[in-house]
Simulated assay, not measured.
Amino acid sequence: MPLTATRAVSTFGITVVGFMTANLVPVMILALTDLGYSATGAGTLMTACLLLSAMTCLATARWTTGSGRYKVARIGLALTASGFGAAAVIADPTIAAIGIIIAGLGSGGAVAAGGAALAALRDPDRASGISGFTNRAIVAVVLFIIPLIGIGMGSAFGILAALALAALFTTGWMPDRPKGETGGAPNIERSRARTSRSTRIAGFGVLACFALWALGEDSLWAVAAVMGEQQASLDEAGMALVLSLSTAGGLVASAAVSLFGKKLGRTVPLVTALLVGAILKITSGFVTDPGLYLVVIIVWNTVYMVAFLYIVAIAAALDATGKWSAPILGVYLVGSSFAPLFGTAVSEMVGFANLGIILGAITLIVLVPLLFISRFSHQQEADQAQDTTPGAEFPHAAIV
């Protein structure tokens, strides 16, 4: 389906709201400590929230590949708004915990619905790039506003509750599954018979790789501040600069993918981003100069976003109904949820240098299967377009 203004607002907005909890975890933990939680207790509660979000996303993914995506999105966003809203306005640790758990369940449904809707849009690379740009832009604005009005339960959780409520009214604008996917035409059935087994292997492969890759990427992010302080003698002002410029780097990467993704193809940029990311993660464990450390982390975070968007595009291209793009962000959250524990534990046991080597190795391990899955996704995307809209003009990225 072509990308219209209403489809963009709904699809990207719902995905961003569902996924934003992961981006706001640092300020949410600070707000919870002000409410009376210990840092460990707040971190545990937010980890539980993210894990529940991931599990809900995976559990509802199948329902969102059809018309059920509207109901899943509405219920999910309603739970997110009510849960975070209760945590924001009722200053009670128990109510806050219950509300956050409810919101975690709801946000997973929103992520699944938004991911499935993304697959229905033409040119998955461009759509994924715009989605990533929207995410980074909104998160940057929210992270700018919260400190201005003061970090607290009302700001950290209330803003996200309001965004979820706003997104709830846009669910009817989401694109439905492509019409050709619901029929039983012989050419479609033959295509499905030829590719179903290979597509399943590719689909489960990209999900597994994305979860493992998320663990490696977010493990470095979890210890980036501590590493910068202890290894590179970077002060708080320097780390604040790293965070802000990293967000800017993500915006640039998202814009580049949305504008030039079709011209660049999919496989070469993905492999390049993964390879550069692996080198930078290894390098981060050895850098002692503050300025150089700042550059390494910012560039790494930029190429991270490029890889992230292309992996999501692969999942969208494998099946236009959203069978694989619906759970893709859920498996990312699974890997991301364990990243803080993994990153801190490994760095304490073997040091930052060895942590960097381990994280770089994780990226290199997933690079090889993702290379082949990416190439397969191009052909699968072309086959689906030929089967569902024969003779119609449908833009695709060039096969690399």
Rank of each mutant, 00 (worst) to 15 (best):
A232V: 07
T321I: 04
A97I: 07
M55H: 12
F260V: 10
I311F: 03
I365C: 04
I328K: 00
T134Q: 06
G205S: 03
F133L: 10
S196M: 15
L215P: 04
L160P: 09
F308L: 14
A161Y: 02
L160Y: 08
F308G: 13
W173T: 00
F286R: 07
K263G: 13
A167Y: 00
L294Q: 14
T80P: 07
G68M: 11
L165S: 04
A73G: 01
D387S: 12
L294T: 12
T47W: 06
L259R: 15
L370Y: 06
A326D: 02
I75C: 03
T363A: 14
E236N: 15
N354D: 15
L168T: 03
A42H: 05
A232P: 06
W213G: 07
D34G: 12
A113M: 01
L264C: 15
A253N: 01
A255K: 09
S196V: 15
L309Q: 10
A73W: 01
T171P: 06
D383P: 11
Q386D: 14
T389Y: 13
M46N: 11
P2A: 10
T65W: 02
P93C: 07
L77M: 10
M174S: 04
C49P: 10
G205C: 04
C209F: 11
A73F: 06
G104Q: 01
G115P: 09
A222E: 01
K281D: 12
V16A: 02
L309K: 05
T4W: 00
H378I: 11
V252D: 02
G250P: 07
D123S: 12
A120G: 00
V111P: 05
T6A: 12
N135T: 09
A162Y: 10
T11H: 00
G291F: 01
I399W: 13
A248P: 10
I357M: 14
A382W: 06
G13V: 04
R62A: 15
G152D: 12
S246G: 04
R136F: 13
I358P: 07
T134R: 08
F372D: 09
R375A: 15
A86N: 03
D218M: 14
M20F: 05
T94C: 09
L77Y: 09
R190L: 13
T44R: 11
A339Y: 06
P124H: 09
P93Q: 10
T4F: 03
Y310H: 13
N23K: 07
I14F: 03
Y310K: 07
A222M: 05
F204I: 10
L274D: 05
V142E: 05
L79K: 01
C49L: 13
G76S: 10
M174F: 07
G180H: 02
V400G: 15
